[in-house]
Design a protein around this nucleic acid. Structure first.
Length: 271
DNA sequence: AGCACTGTTTACAT
DNA sequence: TATGTAAACAGTGC
């Protein structure tokens, strides 16, 4: 379910609870969540202590006293930190037990989420993190000309380019629509038609919108809660995604499929 | 009932 | 290499 602001919200909530806790046991009920060989994962994560929780793009990174637990929530992954045996359902697929009577439950209705163990020297040098583009929230000095040069090499819609994560990471289906609206760019425009000024606007509004969404604890729509039952408020600030009328010119918004994803934009304001 | 839809990523075909 | 499509899965709504 989450894009960058929702993952960042999860990170902040989990960090309040998990720092310093030792993972005394792990129960894996659905192996598909774990990308590694199951025994490799268990052998390397069990017994480790959580020292910090980081984020890059939409990935959560649990820093262990040795190595990292890398986690992607994909569409529906959620974490719950609760007393042992206080919650269970058929969508709980991984349980991390600590030595304080609490557990971290990983719930994922669609089972798309992934976890893997990374050694200290592997984290940023191996897939997937090595293939991520700049993070508009974490990376403060973005090389604007480099971003533009990468965008204009592609001949696919700018929305598709931004969803790929390889040039800019963190935007998903909701925030891409919002960024392209603020940038006044038609989401169908091929990458090779994007000017340097437009590319710079994409960077500028990605920073603005994602940071504002973090301040509002992300977006909660369609009755989904932002993991952990934390409700976001950014849905109150959306300009186009799920909307019918352009807040700027008042024309009816256009709703189309791009790359198989529902896309909202104003064909009057976005060129 | 059956199909379309869902805040993601990646494997595979062309 | 680049791009388009389908798949991984389960639930909801029409």
């Amino acid at each position: 379910m989450p894009e960058l602001p929702e993952v960042e919200t999860v990170r902040r909530v989990l960090k309040n609870d998990l720092i310093g806790l030792k993972i005394s046991d792990i129960e894996i009920r659905y192996n598909g969540i774990i990308e590694d060989d199951i025994n490799y994962f268990l052998n390397n994560v069990k017994g480790k202590t959580i020292e910090d929780i980081l984020r890059r793009g939409k990935y959560l990174i649990f820093k262990l006293n040795e190595g990292y637990l890398l986690s992607h929530l994909r569409m529906e992954g959620k974490y719950f930190y609760l007393p042992n045996d206080s919650l269970d359902n058929k969508h709980i697929h991984v349980i991390f037990k600590f030595n304080n009577g609490y557990s971290l439950l990983y719930q994922d209705v669609r089972k798309f989420g992934k976890m893997s163990y990374k050694k200290d020297d592997e984290l940023y040098n191996t897939h997937p993190l090595k293939d991520l583009g700049v993070d508009p929230v974490l990376d403060t000095d973005i090389n604007e000309k480099l971003i533009h040069s990468k965008i204009i090499k592609k001949h696919i819609p700018i929305k598709t380019i931004l969803l790929e994560q390889s040039i800019i990471t963190g935007l998903g289906n909701i925030y891409v629509d919002e960024v392209l609206f603020s940038s006044k760019i038609d989401p169908n425009r091929p990458g090779n038609t994007i000017t340097l000024e437009e590319s710079n606007n994409i960077i500028r509004y990605s920073k603005e919108i994602l940071n504002k969404a973090i301040l509002n604890k992300g977006t909660t729509i369609r009755s989904y809660t932002s993991s952990l039952g934390v409700e976001g408020n950014y849905q109150n600030f959306l300009n186009v995604h799920t909307k019918n009328i352009c807040p700027h010119c008042k024309n009816a918004l256009t709703r189309v499929k791009i790359n198989g994803r529902t896309t909202y934009f104003c064909n009057n304001c976005q060129r």
